[in-house]
Amino acid sequence: MYQSVIRTVPALIVAVAVGIFGSQVACAQQQPIKRTDLLKTDLSDIEGKEMHIWVADIAPGAATGPHFHPTPRFVYVLEGAVVLELDGKPPRTYTVGQAYVEMPGERHNFRNASTTEPAKALGFQYGGKDQPLQINAP
Protein backbone atom coordinates (compact mmCIF):
# COMPACT_ATOMS: atom_id res chain seq x y z
CA MET A 1 0.00 0.00 0.00
CA TYR A 2 2.78 2.44 0.90
CA GLN A 3 4.53 1.74 -2.41
CA SER A 4 1.44 2.70 -4.41
CA VAL A 5 1.08 5.90 -2.35
CA ILE A 6 4.77 6.67 -2.87
CA ARG A 7 4.30 6.24 -6.64
CA THR A 8 1.04 8.23 -6.69
CA VAL A 9 2.24 11.31 -4.77
CA PRO A 10 5.03 12.28 -7.24
CA ALA A 11 2.66 11.72 -10.16
CA LEU A 12 0.06 13.92 -8.47
CA ILE A 13 2.66 16.65 -7.82
CA VAL A 14 3.74 16.58 -11.46
CA ALA A 15 0.11 16.70 -12.65
CA VAL A 16 -0.67 19.70 -10.43
CA ALA A 17 2.51 21.51 -11.55
CA VAL A 18 1.71 20.89 -15.22
CA GLY A 19 -1.85 22.09 -14.66
CA ILE A 20 -0.74 25.30 -12.95
CA PHE A 21 2.03 26.02 -15.46
CA GLY A 22 -0.20 25.13 -18.40
CA SER A 23 -2.97 27.49 -17.26
CA GLN A 24 -0.43 30.31 -16.77
CA VAL A 25 0.92 29.77 -20.29
CA ALA A 26 -2.60 29.67 -21.73
CA CYS A 27 -3.52 32.91 -19.95
CA ALA A 28 -0.31 34.58 -21.10
CA GLN A 29 -0.91 33.55 -24.71
CA GLN A 30 -4.59 34.50 -24.87
CA GLN A 31 -4.87 38.26 -25.27
CA PRO A 32 -8.41 39.63 -25.28
CA ILE A 33 -7.47 42.38 -27.75
CA LYS A 34 -4.28 42.04 -29.72
CA ARG A 35 -3.13 45.19 -31.51
CA THR A 36 -0.74 44.83 -34.44
CA ASP A 37 0.87 48.12 -35.45
CA LEU A 38 0.94 48.53 -39.24
CA LEU A 39 2.33 52.06 -39.54
CA LYS A 40 3.64 54.86 -37.37
CA THR A 41 4.83 57.88 -39.30
CA ASP A 42 5.51 61.57 -38.79
CA LEU A 43 2.96 63.99 -40.21
CA SER A 44 5.32 66.42 -41.90
CA ASP A 45 2.68 69.12 -42.38
CA ILE A 46 1.65 69.02 -38.68
CA GLU A 47 4.66 69.74 -36.49
CA GLY A 48 5.21 67.22 -33.68
CA LYS A 49 2.38 64.89 -34.73
CA GLU A 50 2.45 61.30 -35.97
CA MET A 51 -0.11 58.93 -37.50
CA HIS A 52 -0.78 55.45 -36.12
CA ILE A 53 -2.50 52.68 -38.08
CA TRP A 54 -3.12 49.23 -36.60
CA VAL A 55 -5.28 46.13 -36.73
CA ALA A 56 -7.02 44.92 -33.58
CA ASP A 57 -7.93 41.24 -33.22
CA ILE A 58 -10.72 41.09 -30.64
CA ALA A 59 -11.33 37.75 -28.93
CA PRO A 60 -14.92 36.59 -28.37
CA GLY A 61 -16.44 38.55 -25.49
CA ALA A 62 -13.37 40.80 -25.10
CA ALA A 63 -13.71 44.46 -24.11
CA THR A 64 -11.34 47.37 -23.57
CA GLY A 65 -12.97 48.64 -20.40
CA PRO A 66 -13.78 52.34 -19.89
CA HIS A 67 -11.30 54.70 -21.52
CA PHE A 68 -10.99 57.79 -23.72
CA HIS A 69 -8.64 59.20 -26.35
CA PRO A 70 -6.91 62.61 -26.46
CA THR A 71 -7.36 62.80 -30.26
CA PRO A 72 -9.96 61.37 -32.66
CA ARG A 73 -9.76 57.63 -33.34
CA PHE A 74 -11.25 56.24 -36.54
CA VAL A 75 -12.26 52.57 -36.67
CA TYR A 76 -13.25 50.35 -39.63
CA VAL A 77 -14.68 46.87 -38.95
CA LEU A 78 -12.92 44.16 -40.98
CA GLU A 79 -14.48 41.01 -39.48
CA GLY A 80 -17.34 40.20 -37.12
CA ALA A 81 -19.12 42.94 -35.21
CA VAL A 82 -18.11 45.34 -32.45
CA VAL A 83 -20.08 47.42 -29.97
CA LEU A 84 -19.24 51.00 -29.03
CA GLU A 85 -20.66 51.98 -25.63
CA LEU A 86 -20.42 55.76 -25.20
CA ASP A 87 -21.29 57.18 -21.78
CA GLY A 88 -24.83 58.55 -21.79
CA LYS A 89 -25.77 57.00 -25.15
CA PRO A 90 -27.24 53.63 -26.14
CA PRO A 91 -24.68 51.02 -27.31
CA ARG A 92 -24.17 50.95 -31.06
CA THR A 93 -23.15 47.85 -33.03
CA TYR A 94 -20.94 48.11 -36.13
CA THR A 95 -20.50 45.25 -38.59
CA VAL A 96 -18.15 44.42 -41.47
CA GLY A 97 -17.64 47.40 -43.75
CA GLN A 98 -18.89 50.01 -41.28
CA ALA A 99 -16.76 52.73 -39.73
CA TYR A 100 -17.11 55.17 -36.83
CA VAL A 101 -15.16 57.77 -34.91
CA GLU A 102 -14.37 57.99 -31.19
CA MET A 103 -14.08 61.71 -30.42
CA PRO A 104 -11.49 63.13 -28.00
CA GLY A 105 -12.46 62.93 -24.34
CA GLU A 106 -15.52 60.70 -24.91
CA ARG A 107 -15.49 58.04 -22.18
CA HIS A 108 -16.44 54.71 -23.73
CA ASN A 109 -16.03 50.95 -23.85
CA PHE A 110 -15.30 48.98 -27.02
CA ARG A 111 -16.13 45.27 -27.19
CA ASN A 112 -16.66 42.30 -29.45
CA ALA A 113 -20.40 41.89 -30.09
CA SER A 114 -20.03 38.09 -30.07
CA THR A 115 -19.11 35.77 -27.22
CA THR A 116 -18.28 32.97 -29.68
CA GLU A 117 -16.69 34.57 -32.77
CA PRO A 118 -13.62 36.84 -33.03
CA ALA A 119 -13.78 40.31 -34.56
CA LYS A 120 -11.17 42.44 -36.30
CA ALA A 121 -10.95 46.21 -36.77
CA LEU A 122 -8.60 48.64 -38.47
CA GLY A 123 -7.77 51.76 -36.48
CA PHE A 124 -6.37 55.18 -37.43
CA GLN A 125 -5.30 57.85 -34.96
CA TYR A 126 -2.90 60.76 -34.91
CA GLY A 127 -1.27 62.11 -31.81
CA GLY A 128 1.68 64.01 -30.49
CA LYS A 129 5.02 62.24 -30.38
CA ASP A 130 5.17 60.04 -27.28
CA GLN A 131 1.58 61.03 -26.38
CA PRO A 132 -0.56 58.14 -25.08
CA LEU A 133 -3.29 57.32 -27.59
CA GLN A 134 -5.62 55.81 -24.98
CA ILE A 135 -6.19 56.72 -21.35
CA ASN A 136 -7.98 54.27 -19.05
CA ALA A 137 -10.88 55.79 -17.15
CA PRO A 138 -12.37 54.81 -13.78
Rank of each mutant, 00 (worst) to 15 (best):
T36N: 12
G48W: 08
G48H: 13
K49V: 01
E117R: 03
P66L: 14
Y76W: 10
S23I: 00
K49S: 09
G123Y: 11
Q134I: 11
K40F: 05
V75D: 10
S4G: 03
N136Q: 15
V77L: 07
Q98P: 05
R92C: 04
I20V: 15
F21E: 04
Q125E: 15
T41H: 11
D87F: 02
A11I: 04
G19K: 01
L122G: 05
E79T: 03
L122H: 06
Q24T: 06
H108S: 05
V101M: 14
E47S: 13
P70K: 07
Q125R: 10
V25N: 01
V18Q: 00
E117H: 04
K129D: 06
T8L: 14
M103K: 13
K89F: 09
D45P: 01
G127N: 11
E79V: 01
K129L: 13
Y94D: 03
D57K: 01
L86H: 09
Q30H: 15
A11E: 09
P72K: 12
R111F: 03
D37K: 05
L38T: 07
T8C: 05
Y2A: 11
N136R: 15
H69C: 08
A59S: 14
N109W: 02
L122W: 06
R73E: 15
S114M: 04
L133M: 14
L78A: 04
Y126G: 08
Y94P: 07
D42G: 10
N136M: 14
G48N: 14
E102R: 00
K89E: 15
D45F: 13
V82N: 04
G97P: 05
P60Y: 00
